[in-house]
Design a protein around this nucleic acid. Sequence first.
DNA 1: ATGTGACCGTTAGATAACTAACGTTTGGCT
DNA 2: AGCCAAACGTTAGTTATCTAACGGTCACAT
Lengths: 153, 153
Amino acid sequence: MPRPTGPPIGLTLARTAKSVSRAFDDALAAAGGSLPVWLIMISLKTRSLGNQRELADAIGIRGATLTHHLNAMEADGLVTRQRDPANRRIHQVALTQRGETLFGRLAAAATEHDRRLHADLSKEDIATLERLLHRLQSNVGSEVPEATAGSDA
Amino acid sequence: MPRPTGPPIGLTLARTAKSVSRAFDDALAAAGGSLPVWLIMISLKTRSLGNQRELADAIGIRGATLTHHLNAMEADGLVTRQRDPANRRIHQVALTQRGETLFGRLAAAATEHDRRLHADLSKEDIATLERLLHRLQSNVGSEVPEATAGSDA
DNA sequence: ATGTGACCGTTAGATAACTAACGTTTGGCT
DNA sequence: AGCCAAACGTTAGTTATCTAACGGTCACAT
């Protein structure tokens, strides 16, 4: 009995994520950025996203929050927003030269953070962790079992 | 090569924690509470905490934020705050009868959430996950290796 | 007894996320 | 042609957290 009603796994998960995210954000702040800015940039670089909504979904925030960050980034000269001529509802977001420069610095900080995070963990450990985290996510995803008995709502 | 520069583990961790916390908070909201309220209550019930600062540390928030929640909970008649006669700096926080009742409902919701979260995971899986999460936390904890070469601060 | 420093909790102000409602644009249907 | 529903992004307002500064209380030394 290794878990005699100890702290629930959800609580440990939340605390760990808070610590790790905090440390990551600090590292990015030291490089002149922040966690959301980094997520936006890396999504712009790697994925080919059609619109801002997909971008927001990709980094796990709401559309309104993304607008907020893009406003700040545009004011800082990191990105540009242009209407798509073919579909004027869509804003095409692109990194400026200055944005590319900052991306380089943040990438270095992110790599360093990841190195530190892995530290003594083996590749199998990381793979196992990823697998378990995905299981947790799918367990709370949309599993609303309404096939039990009665609709007691 | 199972991780060809895929999403960093820190990102997966953050997303999973967000989803799970969100789901948990929704479940608690349906029972008439919230995640911080639940954490405060369970800490009051289980641990024997000397003061509010320890309470805040136990649930991972700042003292000022705890004050905010306790104000709301006191206004709702869930807890009482009294000065410790032996040490008037300390506020003794206690659950009222109404607080106990809500605690019961939230405990049921939390148990249900935990059951759903575990779902197909074995005890070994949970133990492994806990171990890996603790490793991550300690890796970013306060590991400031200043024994490398020069003090470039 | 009195002054100094530390501890505890609160208050004030800033920051960042969310939800809800809105204006614009598009495409299909009548 | 004109209308209506849907999609996209922005704006407005709320909520929750943090940091910094403050007032009250205690222990200890002088």
